[in-house]
Simulated assay, not measured.
Amino acid sequence: METNMLSIQKLVGRKNYAVWKTQMKFYLIHEELGHLIEKIPSEGEATAGRKRDTKALNKIGLLVQPQCLIHLQNAKTIKAAWEVLTKAFEDKVINRRCTLLGKLFDKK
């Protein structure tokens, strides 16, 4: 594995998603793959574009803990992987507050 990737902590879940997302985005930009988060290579695009997308998808797959791989199993592009991880782990303030309040009441 590349030295650059070793400094990024693997995604565990909601607990470290915000930091992982930021580091991963910077890493992909550094590798000139960051634009693929927002754009799916078209069918007519050169094979090189699809290869770069696959390379970026693999980098994400290598930087998540095994329990997070279930979210990536059907992702065919990095954009799809990015979206599914965002949906699964991004902290939605109101949902998070409700969950925490529920846990608080369960403790009593």
Rank of each mutant, 00 (worst) to 15 (best):
residue 21 K to P: 04
residue 12 V to Q: 12
residue 55 K to V: 15
residue 77 T to R: 08
residue 97 R to W: 14
residue 22 T to G: 05
residue 39 K to P: 01
residue 64 V to D: 00
residue 3 T to D: 06
residue 82 W to T: 03
residue 49 G to F: 10
residue 45 E to G: 09
residue 61 G to V: 09
residue 23 Q to I: 00
residue 36 L to P: 00
residue 59 K to G: 12
residue 74 N to M: 07
residue 75 A to C: 00
residue 1 M to Y: 15
residue 5 M to A: 08
residue 38 E to N: 14
residue 75 A to V: 00
residue 36 L to C: 02
residue 12 V to R: 13
residue 37 I to C: 09
residue 49 G to A: 13
residue 107 K to I: 13
residue 2 E to T: 15
residue 25 K to N: 06
residue 45 E to L: 03
residue 105 F to D: 07
residue 33 L to E: 08
residue 27 Y to S: 07
residue 74 N to W: 13
residue 85 L to N: 01
residue 85 L to Q: 07
residue 92 K to I: 10
residue 80 A to N: 13
residue 70 I to A: 10
residue 63 L to P: 06
residue 93 V to W: 06
residue 93 V to N: 06
residue 100 L to S: 01
residue 10 K to E: 09
residue 41 P to H: 15
residue 22 T to C: 02
residue 108 K to Y: 05
residue 57 L to N: 04
residue 36 L to K: 00
residue 73 Q to F: 10
residue 83 E to W: 04
residue 54 T to C: 14
residue 50 R to H: 15
residue 44 G to F: 12
residue 72 L to G: 02
residue 96 R to Y: 11
residue 64 V to I: 01
residue 54 T to N: 14
residue 66 P to M: 14
residue 72 L to Q: 02
residue 55 K to E: 15
residue 98 C to R: 12
residue 65 Q to L: 10
residue 3 T to Y: 05
residue 49 G to N: 05
residue 100 L to F: 05
residue 54 T to G: 12
residue 44 G to H: 14
residue 62 L to D: 09
residue 49 G to Y: 10
residue 68 C to A: 04
residue 73 Q to I: 09
residue 94 I to D: 09
residue 27 Y to D: 03
residue 73 Q to N: 14
residue 52 R to T: 01
residue 99 T to Q: 15
residue 70 I to G: 11
residue 17 Y to R: 02
residue 105 F to P: 01
residue 72 L to K: 04
residue 16 N to R: 03
residue 72 L to W: 08
residue 51 K to Y: 14
residue 33 L to I: 06
residue 59 K to N: 15
residue 16 N to H: 06
residue 31 E to C: 15
residue 65 Q to R: 06
residue 66 P to H: 07
residue 58 N to P: 03
residue 25 K to F: 13
residue 87 K to M: 15
residue 71 H to W: 03
residue 2 E to K: 13
residue 44 G to P: 01
residue 55 K to T: 14
residue 99 T to N: 09
residue 17 Y to T: 00
residue 25 K to D: 09
residue 28 L to P: 00
residue 46 A to I: 04
residue 94 I to T: 09
residue 29 I to K: 11
residue 53 D to I: 02
residue 87 K to H: 15
residue 48 A to P: 10
residue 60 I to P: 02
residue 91 D to G: 06
residue 38 E to A: 05
residue 73 Q to H: 11
residue 96 R to H: 12
residue 55 K to I: 13
residue 107 K to R: 12
residue 12 V to D: 10
residue 15 K to M: 09
residue 2 E to F: 08
residue 6 L to E: 06
residue 75 A to D: 03
residue 58 N to H: 15
residue 69 L to T: 06
residue 82 W to G: 01
residue 81 A to T: 11
residue 24 M to T: 00
residue 68 C to N: 06
residue 47 T to W: 06
residue 90 E to L: 02
residue 38 E to S: 07
residue 30 H to D: 00
residue 85 L to A: 03
residue 68 C to W: 05
residue 82 W to E: 05
residue 7 S to A: 11
residue 48 A to G: 05
residue 35 H to E: 15
residue 57 L to A: 02
residue 39 K to Y: 02
residue 46 A to K: 08
residue 9 Q to D: 09
residue 3 T to V: 01
residue 53 D to M: 02
residue 70 I to T: 10
residue 65 Q to T: 08
residue 17 Y to N: 03
residue 25 K to T: 07
residue 62 L to V: 01
residue 78 I to A: 01
residue 18 A to E: 01
residue 71 H to R: 09
residue 17 Y to G: 03
residue 101 L to T: 06
residue 90 E to V: 05
residue 45 E to K: 07
residue 20 W to V: 02
residue 70 I to C: 12
residue 34 G to N: 07
